[in-house]
Each structure stands twice: as structure tokens, then as C-alpha cells.
Design a binder for these strands. Structure first.
Length: 286
DNA sequence: AACCAGGTACTAA
DNA sequence: TTAGTACATGGT
């Protein structure tokens, strides 16, 4: 299916919390300049401006509108989602201001690279590392008087040595990224359509440097899975406090609990928990 | 100067 | 299965 290639469009998305969605830790490829948001998508740069309820977008190169719509999860009924998860008494006690968060559907490869780097790391530094990684290939995209660097393809990354990766401030994660890149190429994960989420998760877990949390991030943010959630430190703390579950619970136990409580909406509920607790701490320290 | 960041691999019990 | 620890790097 190929649609018409266009460079600009408008999308109707009422009540969209664009700040938390783009900068809350599910994606690392956006920067904000004034009221405009610029994001690198493979070899393109997209600019978006949100004026409730319209999202205006502009691309540096012609692109199918469908790709943009998918990315912003346009075909999902968010009104229905938040109506559902906010029926939960405990969850609804958290900040309702987070009810405009959407879950982006990112490029699978970009998600794999991003979340391998994200482990035991902070958001600003993750972004810096990804930028340095992009600069290795020096594919510059000029757009609106600014220069951006295209996200490295797997073919490009395969050519890089572990030392070159390490120079991107990846720390000990450089060997993980190096190894994961090889594994993704060998398994041809990016080109397979015969694979379901459960199988993909197992492939990812078999890679050196990907554990449960990163695998689940890749599934949720890069593969469109919504009926599970990555359990990071904030979701863990949040779930323990919000639902009064044992602090000793394992990763799998917390995830099962959330799935049993929120079902097909688990990822959305966890996103609200994540932002709520992450920002609560930030307010304390600043 | 410790402590932390959207964890994982490894070891020992 | 669970508990503890090393791991690179930069910011606070």
C-alpha cells in the first residue's frame, strides 16, 4: 500500500499532551525550538506544531501521510482509553493532567538502538549519545535553516567498530549495542513479517544487552504492542504505592498485576503511572 | 564527594 | 528463583 507523497498536513488530535508525549522518555529524537518540535525520522525531519485540537506537520521530504498518522497513534481511540483506565479508582487518584499522553509508534530499529542505550542512563544523556551516533555517518538533513543528522541505518552501524560506538559516550553499553546490531542483522528481525510479539520478545531477550525491560520498551514503543508495559524503576515504585503491592515483587509479578488490572490498556495505564511518579520526584528536587 | 539515571549480566546461595 | 554487585559516563 503506497499513498500519495506529501510534505505537510493537519491531524485532528484533541487534548493532546504533546510535551509529555515527545519528551517524557518514550522517544529521544525530538527537540523543541520555540513552539515547534523537530524530530528525525530515518532520513527525514518532521516539524510539528500543536494548537489544540490540530497537529500541524511539515516534512523535509515527501512522505506518506499514513506514516505520520500511525506514528501519532491516530487510529487509536484515546477517549475510550482514558475513559476506561480512569475508571480505576486508584489510578484516577493520580494526576488527571496526564490524560493527554499518547504512545508513539516508533520505527523498530530506532527503538531498538534507543532503548539499548537507555538502560541505567538519563534522558539528556541518551539524547546526546544518539546524536553522536547519528553524526558518525554525517548524513546531514537541512531543514528550515537547521542541520540534523539522519538516524544510522543498521547497515551503517554494522560497519562501525565497538571503539567507534564507545566514542559516543555509550559507556559499557557500547558492547551491548555492537552485539545487538549483529544479532538483529543475523536474525533479520527488521524484515520479518512472520513473527508475533511473543516470538519477537524472545528473540530480543536472547540478545546480549537486552533484558526484560528493554525488550518490553521495544515491543511497546517500536512494535505497537499495548497489552503489556515495561516495568522500570518509576512504574515499579508507582505500582507498589498506587496499588499497594509488595515491594519485593519481581518484574514479572508487577507486569502480570498490571496486565490483570488493565488488560489491553496496560501500556497506557503504565505511561500515566510512569509520568506521574517521575515528575513527582522532579518537583521535590527542584 | 557520593549518588543517580526508563538495567543487564554474572555469580553465589 | 532470588539477592547482591560491577559496569561507563556525565550531571547534580
Amino acid at each position: 500500500m503506497t499513498g500519495k507523497l506529501i510534505t505537510t498536513g493537519q491531524i485532528f488530535i484533541p487534548n493532546f499532551n504533546i510535551e509529555l508525549t515527545l519528551y517524557g522518555g518514550q522517544a529521544f529524537n525530538w527537540i523543541k525550538i520555540d513552539n515547534k518540535h523537530f524530530g528525525v525520522f530515518q532520513d527525514k525531519v518532521i516539524k510539528v506544531i500543536y494548537e489544540d485540537p490540530i497537529l500541524y506537520w511539515y516534512s523535509s521530504k515527501p512522505i506518506e501521510e499514513h506514516i505520520i498518522l500511525e506514528y501519532f497513534d491516530y487510529f487509536t481511540d484515546y477517549h475510550d482509553i482514558y475513559r476506561n483506565i480512569l475508571q480505576d479508582k486508584s489510578l484516577s487518584k493520580l494526576q488527571h493532567t496526564y490524560s493527554g499522553i499518547r504512545i508513539l509508534k516508533q520505527d523498530l530499529w530506532q527503538a531498538i538502538v534507543s532503548f539499548v542505550i537507555s538502560q541505567n542512563n538519563n534522558i539528556p544523556k541518551i539524547k546526546t549519545s544518539l546524536e553522536k551516533l547519528a553524526k558518525l555517518n554525517n548524513r546531514i538533513i537541512k531543514f528550515e535553516n537547521q542541520s540534523f543528522y539522519a538516524f544510522p541505518t543498521i547497515e551503517e552501524l554494522l560497519k562501525k567498530s565497538e571503539q567507534e560506538l564507545q566514542a559516543c559516550s555509550l559507556g559499557y553499553r557500547s558492547k551491548y549495542l555492537y552485539s545487538v546490531t549483529q544479532s538483529v542483522a543475523q536474525t533479520k528481525l527488521l524484515h520479518r513479517t512472520d513473527i508475533n510479539a511473543k516470538t519477537l520478545r524472545q528473540y530480543l531477550l536472547d540478545m546480549h544487552g537486552i533484558g526484560e525491560k528493554v525488550a518490553d520498551c521495544i515491543l511497546v514503543y517500536g512494535y505497537g504492542v499495548r497489552n503489556i508495559a515495561p516495568i522500570d524503576i518509576w512504574v515499579r515504585r508507582g505500582a507498589i504505592e498506587t496499588f499497594n503491592i509488595s515491594p519485593k515483587s519481581s518484574y514479572k509479578q508487577i507486569q502480570h498485576y498490571l496486565v490483570s488490572r488493565f488488560g489491553e490498556y496496560t501500556a497506557y495505564a503504565a505511561q500515566v503511572i510512569f509520568e506521574s511518579f517521575r515528575l513527582k520526584l522532579k518537583q521535590k528536587t527542584t
